[in-house]
């Protein structure tokens, strides 16, 4: 009897392990292949997301009020600094508007409807973060209903922070650049060097020890310098052109010495996210 129950337990454990691996494999495959999760999962996630807001909104509000009190303490200094910046920005903004208008007119003349730089920004609030150490992932409160689609880039502050990994009707999951899995941070980017040359490449990973994004296998003779700006190139997919990623921090030889490897300082703090913007491209 004892032996039988031991055997049965072993069988149960093995069956559980097999079923678990099967389920994981299926869901990882579906996540990679399909643009939306199965309808039941979507529906469940929507309901859970709605219920979660009951908990998330008060806690996020609480943390917001605490941080606003602490921010109040250095408001005066900040205000002085920002005033200077604002006067500079006004100039840039006016110029930007004029250029945008001109751009529109020129496009109209050329009968070009939407180019790689065109996108609409959908802003969303972060509801919650995945409590897991290897999945740097947040859930935002906009989904397919607001036009969000899988793989769209997500920004916060001034820079790129990640991409949409899963879309439900009213919420979606955003995989951050800091996530080190195989597909989270492969963005096509380009760098314009000081001499005016454009270098294209793909982001290849995130180095947690220094908090820098890496970009590997660059085969160019152009001289890349510290401080060169990295923006998305809009090639190959739903990412629009011209989203700011960060600045070049260091350029070294890659692991095999043939190509160049870049370290990029991200434009925004990737760990403190409250409001994010999804770039919904028009194409």
């Amino acid at each position: 009897m004892q032996k039988f129950s031991l055997n049965r337990r072993l069988v149960i454990i093995i069956v559980c392990v097999i079923v678990s691996f099967a389920l994981m494999t299926v869901s990882v495959t579906m996540r990679n292949k399909k643009s939306t999760p199965p309808l039941i999962q979507q529906f469940g996630n929507d309901i859970v997301g709605l219920v979660d807001r009951v908990v998330a909104i008060p806690t996020n509000g609480l943390s917001g009020s605490v941080s606003s009190v602490s921010e109040l303490l250095n408001t005066y200094q900040e205000n002085q600094q920002l005033k200077k910046q604002v006067s500079e920005l006004a100039q840039t903004k006016v110029r930007d508007q004029t250029l945008a208008k001109e751009n529109k007119q020129l496009k109209k003349e050329m009968q070009l409807n939407a180019s790689l730089t065109d996108y609409t920004a959908v802003s969303a609030a972060v509801i919650t973060r995945t409590p897991s150490s290897w999945q740097s992932q947040v859930v935002i409160n906009k989904g397919a209903a607001a036009g969000v689609k899988k793989n769209m880039p997500v920004m916060s502050g001034s820079g790129l922070i990640g991409r949409v990994a899963e879309v439900n009707k009213t919420n979606s999951k955003v995989e951050l650049i800091t996530d080190n899995n195989d597909s989270s941070n492969r963005f096509a980017v380009q760098i314009t060097t000081k001499s005016g040359k454009t270098v294209n490449g793909v982001l290849s990973g995130y180095k947690a020890t220094t908090g820098q994004i890496t970009m590997d296998n660059i085969t160019t003779k152009a001289k890349l310098a510290k401080g060169d700006k990295v923006v998305t190139s809009g090639l190959g997919g739903v990412t629009p052109k011209g989203l700011y990623v960060g600045t070049v921090a260091k350029a070294t030889g890659s692991d095999y010495g043939l190509a160049t490897k870049l370290y990029i300082t991200p434009a925004t703090d990737l760990s403190a996210l409250n409001i994010v913007t999804v770039a919904v491209s028009k194409q």
């Binding site: 979660d52 919650t128 973060r129 995945t130 409590p131 897991s132 740097s136 947690a208 020890t209």
Partner: peptide, 24 residues
């Protein structure tokens, strides 16, 4: 849900390198 909210609110303290504290 508090697990997720705590991770979100204290993400700077909990998930900045080198530590990763996961609330359970």
């Amino acid at each position: 849900f508090l697990d997720g909210s705590i991770s979100q609110v204290f993400s700077v303290q909990m998930f900045r390198y080198p530590t990763a504290m996961v609330s359970h």
